[in-house]
Write a protein that binds this DNA or RNA. Sequence first.
DNA 1: ATCCCTTTGAAGAAA
DNA 2: TTTCTTCAAAGGGAT
Length: 474
Amino acid sequence: MPQLNGGGGDDLGANDELISFKDEGEQEEKISENSSAERDLADVKSSLVNESETNQNSSSDSEAERRPPPRSESFRDKSRESLEEAAKRQDGGLFKGPPYPGYPFIMIPDLTSPYLPNGSLSPTARTLHIQSGSTHYSAYKTIEHQIAIQYLQMKWPLLDVQAGSLQSRQALKDARSPSPAHIVSNKVPVVQHPHHVHPLTPLITYSNEHFTPGNPPPHLPADVDPKTGIPRPPHPPDISPYYPLSPGTVGQIPHPLGWLVPQQGQPVYPITTGGFRHPYPTALTVNASMSSFLSSRFPPHMVPPHHTLHTTGIPHPAIVTPTVKQESSQSDVASLHSSKHQDSKKEEEKKKPHIKKPLNAFMLYMKEMRAKVVAECTLKESAAINQILGRRWHALSREEQAKYYELARKERQLHMQLYPGWSARDNYVGGYGKKKKRKRDKQPGETNGEKKSAFATYKVKAAASVHPLQMEAY
DNA sequence: ATCCCTTTGAAGAAA
DNA sequence: TTTCTTCAAAGGGAT
C-alpha cells in the first residue's frame, strides 16, 4: 500500500483511505494552532519524515469503530458518515444542504449514476434518499439549480446563459452526468464560454497555464502566478483560492458552488501538447448532438480523425495526443515530404492515444493547493512541496477531504464513461513488473538509504524554506 | 533530454 | 485476500 505502513499491518490495505480521515490530522491542526512557530518548525522537520509514526496511535476508539471496510467501501462510509454528521448539525427543514457546503452537488449525481458498483445506488445517494427522500431531493435540486445559475452568471458574466438551446438535452439526460452543471443544464443548457470553456469546465480543475481565458473574472482576487504571471488571488495561508473559506469554516459558510470554482484554470487532465485543452467532457456538452458528443469525447482511435476534436476544437484533456498537430499539418507541408519518416510517424499517430489516469483525491488537492504552497514558501522543488501538501492533506478535516474524494470519484466515473475500455494497465510502460524507471524498492514503511538521504534533504529544505509564521499551515 | 524525487490514492498483477 | 508495483501532477535537481 502506498500509505506509510509504520504499523497496523493487518488493516493497512483496508484503511488506506481511512488514514486520511483519522483524527491525527485534526489533532495536528489543533496542535499547530496552539504551538509556537518554532515548535511547528521543529515539528515539521520531524514529522515530514516520521509522519506515519503519529498515525498509528492517534485514532480514537470511536474512530476505530467507524473504520470503514477496505477499499472502495471506505470512502462510502466516510461519505455517509460525513453526511450523517452534517445532517445532525442541520435542522429538519425542507432543504438540507450537502455535508460539505462548498461541494453542494456531489450527492445528486449518484442518484442516477450507472457506474456505481453492482449497479446500485451509491452509498451517498442512498444516504441522501434515506435522510431526505425524493421530495427533499427535488427541492434540493431546484435550489441548487438556482444557485448554480446565479453563480455562473456572477462568475462568468460573459457566459451565454440561455435556456432552451440544448439540442442534446435528451441525449444528455441519459448521460447521467454527475456534474452539477448537468443539473444546471436542465434549464441553462448553453454555457458556452467564449474561450472554449466546456460547459462542464467547473467540474474540472483548470489551470491558467493550460487554459487562459483572456482575463479572469473581475471578481477573482488578483495575485500573480510566479510562473505564468497570471493573476492569482492572494490568500491567507490556509485559504484556498478555490475555497475562499479556510478549512475550518467550510462547514459553516458554504460557498454556493465552491467545488465548481475553476481551480486556477488547470484541467485535471491537461494536454501537454497542442494549443487547446478540453475539459472533461460530460453530459453537459451543448450545441452538439450525441454523436458529436461522443466523437468529441472519445479517443481519436475510437472515432474518425476529424472528429477527434469537439466542435470547439478542444480535445479531451485526459488524452495526450501529440499527433493532433501533426495530423492537422499533414495535408500541407508534411505531405510534400513523404518519406519513411512520415510512414513511421503515421504509425505512431495511429497508436492509441495516451489516456491519463483520473486524478485521485490527493492529486486533485495537490493541483489546487500547490501554487498556494509554493507561494508561501521559498521552496520550489516539487518533492518538498509535495511533502508539505501531503502533510496538509492529513491535516484537512474530514469534510474537506471528503470533498476531494467525492470529486475524485466523479472523475473516475466520468473517465469510465469516456473511456469504457480503458484500463490503468494501458499506461503501464512495458507492462506490469517491468519498471519503466527504477522506482522505490523500499519495503513498506521504510526507506532505502539513498532515498532517505534525499528525503532528509527535502525535509531540511522544506522546513527551512517555510517562514516560521507560516508554519501553522503545515 | 531524461530520470529522480516526493506525496496519496486507485488500479492491476503477483503472491 | 494480501502485497506489491505503477501511474497520476509538479518542477527543481541530478545525470
